[in-house]
Design a protein around this nucleic acid. Sequence first.
DNA 1: CCTTTTATAGTCGTGATGACCATAAAAGGG
DNA 2: CCCTTTTATGGTCATCACGACTATAAAAGG
Lengths: 239, 239
Amino acid sequence: MRGYDKHAHEPFAVTVDLAVFTLRAGALHVLLVERGQQPYAGHWALPGGFVQPAESAETAARRELAEETGLSDVKELHLEQLRTYSEPDRDPRMRVVSVAFAALLPHPPEPHGGSDASDARWVPYDSAGPLAFDHDTILADAHERVGAKLEYTCLATAFCPPEFTLGELQEVYETVWGTGLDRPNFRRKVLSTPGFVEPVPGAARLTGGRGKPAALYRAGAATALHPPLLRPSREGRPA
Amino acid sequence: MRGYDKHAHEPFAVTVDLAVFTLRAGALHVLLVERGQQPYAGHWALPGGFVQPAESAETAARRELAEETGLSDVKELHLEQLRTYSEPDRDPRMRVVSVAFAALLPHPPEPHGGSDASDARWVPYDSAGPLAFDHDTILADAHERVGAKLEYTCLATAFCPPEFTLGELQEVYETVWGTGLDRPNFRRKVLSTPGFVEPVPGAARLTGGRGKPAALYRAGAATALHPPLLRPSREGRPA
DNA sequence: CCTTTTATAGTCGTGATGACCATAAAAGGG
DNA sequence: CCCTTTTATGGTCATCACGACTATAAAAGG
């Protein structure tokens, strides 16, 4: 049918699901909630909820994220639509179409119990076990998307606090990609990309670590990376 | 709310919208339908329709595409989910959430009148005037997505017949990007990428053109392009 | 036979990158 | 106070990919 003018339409429930990533102690973590009700009671799942009648999926995602993390001042936040999952049997109760989002947070706020008593927790990405519904697929897709966007955008700063060292920025890449990077080469690449980072004059991180203190940088105005910063040692990467 | 267990949910209508691209006479064309009913009666729009209760959005998109183009043997077809458009006021009649898809066809089949008497037509992308609903946005997003994927995937062969010359392949890039490319350099890049194209032994295109006949190639097994084939002369590209 | 047209082959300089090596500036331990 | 360890930062060098460009080959049309 054309222009969707014909035939009656069936009602669907529309939800948002969020894959919220952050870095804790040098490991990639994802925000999960424990389901209190059937189906999948006791299983872990991605946070999410129904889209309300007056809001877009983006607005709903932002609202759900604020409810889960307590972050209403969502300044340091990257939120991006991933794709929509619409298999007819993805929810055994009813027909639910879910718009999935990927979100990045710099410092991990404790997932203070939101509007709801169910348990919410930061879980290391690698041990994010079998999840409810098709959330394993969503989570894997979100991880792949984030990893890919690190290559050709300046997204990595979304994982960092307002001021950060180049070592911390490199740690973002290494943690998300699961690979090691050469420090001088990474430095050269980042500093030679105009607008990626800008130095904070005269500031250096003195935090208890050993070794020479590192200079501090802020995120720059650029959003794209040209040429891209490719993940090492892979021949064919998925489209 | 977490895990969408709480509160009643409002019903939504879920549709698919398709941005179907093809190449006709060296120009990028998009498939449009003329709306016969309100709202936007008489306006052009992207083809699409309601998702049926038992099908996924992908299945619905494939079904709508078959209805519009008469192509049921969708062998030479690239269909890809773009994103979901869910602004509350995007359809004045009711709450409609639309999952948009981008599709590519090699040879342009005549958009035989499908299940519906409304007019369907291939329109040059540049003259695809103001469309109904938010379809201008969807179309622009789809074009940007296709252009971007030409850079780092082997998607261009989806615009080509089973056997094609490198000149035809280059024309895909030039038409979608709207730029000119250096022929020897394009050749070198394509041929030096393993699995992008494979030669058809001893075959050459003799079709009435002047000049030396070109060798024929088939699409190879590769899907990704490393390093990418970047669009010329742009400093910052959107993420 | 000569011009036009298109395909194909090569050349050359530049810039980006990977693999290194070297130095600087801090902490900690003897 | 010296020396080792640790981390940040600076640099070299060969290779590779790419843009710009020139040259040759093979067809059609007059």
